[in-house]
Design a protein around this nucleic acid. Structure first.
Lengths: 254, 254
DNA sequence: CGGCTTCTTGATCTCGATCAATCAGCGTGG
DNA sequence: CCACGCTGATTGATCGAGATCAAGAAGCCG
């Protein structure tokens, strides 16, 4: 839909020409607060990567940590396999978001990251980024802030997982997605889910069947219109209320 | 028990003399990888704080973010109140751990931090820390690593909250506590819980009653011996298995 | 078309929440 | 010293949200 068309064959040139200075995402991405000259320096360490196709992995769990990745287009999921248990989907990544921050303190990435659709990323070698962050205080500061924000989001997720009902989880998910699309200049009301129901369930700690049923219920309540992976949000306000409301106050649920 | 005695009155002098160079926690704390001269510089920006008594708050949710805090002794909990819902306990902090990292990207702390017992902390003004981290690459690197580790721990917590049974949660909690005490030089097998059952339940996403019941069960299975807040871990290995095992494989639970 | 995977829908079962006492620990004041 | 009240911990009985099991129904692609 709103993503550039991969089939034209113009990608490669487009993609070689790409620079932070001309990237529409730079106000959201790491170079956010950089001056032009600093941005040049930053841009110089970035490695553009060939696009990933749907289902391809950016890196595997336990691979040696070397780089962070900024998403340019498309989306990815991070999956952690631990012990005997099943996989846990810990994150979805959208354009301008930074992948790999949780790998810094170890030598390995703590999860596998997989493209959910055709996806392009910028590779940022971490040693060079760290060196550069010595000379550019804004860059360092921005890195700290990005990590801090991710910590904060994690805490929100913990609250969702430990206190919210299935309805509240789904509602939160849609509100959050809507907000993320809005910030990126896409419509907050109409978008296409790049992840399967199973992914959503795994991420939210719910069974696939539950996701399906609640989506159906939301549809009957005219909160959203869902057709396959196409989503139209009809009543964002109420959805926001559902997301935060205590299960008690919900009136005529019957 | 293993904590210095607060009642002797010797605290204040002890506490004024305290420096990173002589602090037994420095190999675990932020100055971990610093040279002597660097550690002096770091030590100079630290502000020692008067001890907090049980129940006192280090800072309130939405207070302006200014500093990180390193725990010297005692322990704290972080509690977030959001919307109409109840509080969510997002973290316990033990000596050498860094409090406040999730406040960096906003101007405010995202939760209230409360002492669970008599607790001393070192205040580290963040603007000075950030400035210092420009000159001391090891310090900057350590900060990144600390934040990254916290991200990783958060992901583990999400897995616990979304996939693990109540038994597994409690077992994980004890294994994790045990490990944290061990790293700090305390006994990994005998310790005193500074938090209430309600706190544990809130943190693990369980009702108090459930915590109580499962503790009882663990006791009957001779995994732990619990008396009030005094804990003796009898079978750490099995506890570790319980923490990771899928509910299926557990053999003769009956 | 057939052979996939993904999604939906229905029926049943279970774990842990909730409700409701009771009990234990503990500081306070008579 | 002991009755009182308060908070925290335990124990028992019931209930319900959501998992699980089991079929179908759509898509999707060679």
């Amino acid at each position: 839909m709103s993503m550039p068309d991969i089939t034209t064959g113009k990608w490669h040139s487009l993609f070689n020409e790409a620079h932070c200075q001309t990237c529409s995402l730079s106000p959201l991405c790491l170079p956010l607060s950089l001056e032009f000259t600093d941005m040049d320096e930053f841009d110089a360490i970035i490695r553009r990567r060939a696009p990933l196709k749907k289902g391809e992995t950016l890196f595997l769990q336990d691979a040696t940590f070397t780089s962070l990745y900024a998403v340019r287009s498309g989306s990815l999921k991070q999956v952690t396999t631990e012990g005997s248990g099943e996989d846990q989907l810990t994150n979805f990544y959208l354009p301008s978001e930074l992948v790999g921050l949780d790998g810094i303190d170890e030598t390995r990435y703590p999860g596998t990251v997989i493209a959910l659709e055709t996806t392009t990323v910028c590779e940022i070698p971490f040693d060079r980024l760290e060196a550069l962050s010595q000379d550019i205080p804004e860059l360092r500061s921005q890195l700290f802030r990005t990590m801090s924000k991710e910590l904060r989001d994690d805490r929100r997720m913990m609250r969702l997982l430990s206190r919210k009902s299935a309805d509240q989880r789904l509602a939160s998910f849609f509100v959050s997605l809507s907000e993320r699309f809005r910030r990126r200049g896409y419509s907050p009301y109409s978008f296409r889910l790049s992840m399967s129901r199973a992914d959503i369930g795994n991420y939210l700690g719910l069974a696939v069947e539950t996701v399906s049923r609640i989506l159906n219920r939301f549809q009957q309540q005219s909160l959203v219109a869902v057709s396959g992976r196409e989503v139209h949000i009809l009543d964002l306000d109420t959805l926001g209320c559902v997301a935060e409301e205590r299960a008690l106050d919900s009136p005529g649920v019957s």
